[in-house]
């Protein structure tokens, strides 16, 4: 499957290169109010450069998905603001492509119709939208599966369609919420490599949420570690591994060090959180 991807001559859709600067300024997010109030994200500020691949790493329930949802526009920050390329995020939009953990393809549309959906919504004709869909399905190696329904595809294939669908709108930022969390280990590794390949060709900014240290280190230019709830960024770690990356890099000292550093930070943080809970 990967070979298809590697040998595919991409029509270099680099329309989004140079775009995708994400700025999170003093954002905090609180759900509910009064006694029921629950702070999911503590005041957080963050700058992400165009084309950067950022992983947000943290334990379950730490608010990393909530922060991502604020960038997507599903959640309004209680304080502060999120902006993409200088424009404040107010609602979800096609400039920020989203890939979810759960399978989120429309089950009643074929794979092809799912990928063409975004371009159709942008007002393109079926012919235009169809050719965009074919381009991106080719990019993820699933051109032959266009007429299938999502339920006929494996989990990994569905997530690749999800990525193609998000990219078909030429977003400046690709937001990914533990997209490979439900996949088996081998498929996950293949998906990670193929995502990096797509990202290299496409050059869009990626914000990738995960709780898997290896995944974060393998993929990212920068790993942001979040504290336990209420979440805030406690570590901003640049990953200097060379690109293009491959799975055999796991033995390189840079990889081992970065991985160890992440684990240490997470361990210290969970100790602190645990101690706090016991007071």
């Amino acid at each position: 499957m990967l070979d298809v991807l590697k040998n595919h001559k991409t029509p270099t859709p680099d329309g989004s290169k140079g775009k995708g600067a994400v700025s999170i300024e003093n954002v905090s997010i609180t759900f509910g109010s009064g006694a029921e109030a629950h702070q999911a994200v503590q005041t957080t500020s963050l700058e992400i450069k165009p084309g950067e691949f950022v992983c947000i790493l943290g334990p379950s329930g730490c608010g990393k998905s909530t922060l991502l949802n604020a960038v997507a526009g599903y959640v309004r920050p209680s304080t502060g603001k999120v902006s993409v390329d200088g424009t404040e995020v107010e609602k979800p939009g096609p400039d920020r492509g989203m890939v979810f953990q759960q399978y989120s393809l429309l089950p009643w549309k074929t794979v092809y119709e799912n990928v063409a959906f975004g371009p159709r919504m942008a007002g393109q004709s079926w012919t235009e939208a169809g050719s965009v869909a074919n381009t991106f399905l080719g990019m993820v190696g699933l051109k032959k599966f266009g007429n299938r329904y999502p339920a006929e595809l494996s989990g990994g294939m569905q997530q690749r369609v999800g990525i193609a669908r998000a990219l078909a709108n030429y977003p400046s930022v690709l937001l990914m919420d533990e997209p490979f969390g439900a996949l088996d280990a081998q498929t996950r590794l293949m998906m990670q490599e193929s995502l990096l390949e797509i990202w290299r060709k496409f050059g869009t900014t990626v914000i990738f949420v995960t709780h898997d240290v290896d995944e974060a280190v393998f993929l990212a230019d920068r790993v942001l570690i979040m504290s336990a709830a209420p979440g805030h960024i406690i570590e901003d770690l640049p990953i200097t591994l060379p690109r293009p990356r491959s799975s055999d890099m796991a033995a390189l000292p840079e990889y081992v060090q970065a991985r160890q550093h992440c684990l240490d930070v997470i361990r210290a943080e969970s100790r602190r959180a645990f101690a706090e809970q016991n007071i």
């Binding site: 599903y74 939009g93 096609p94 979810f100 429309l106 549309k109 919504m121 669908r165 998000a166 709108n169």
Partner: peptide, 23 residues
Amino acid sequence: VLVRAAQSLGASRLAIFQHVVFP
């Protein structure tokens, strides 16, 4: 999640009804 996905793909309220809620 399907409604959110459609929102992120630029679907209007009407389009979300037609392509997500009704099906």
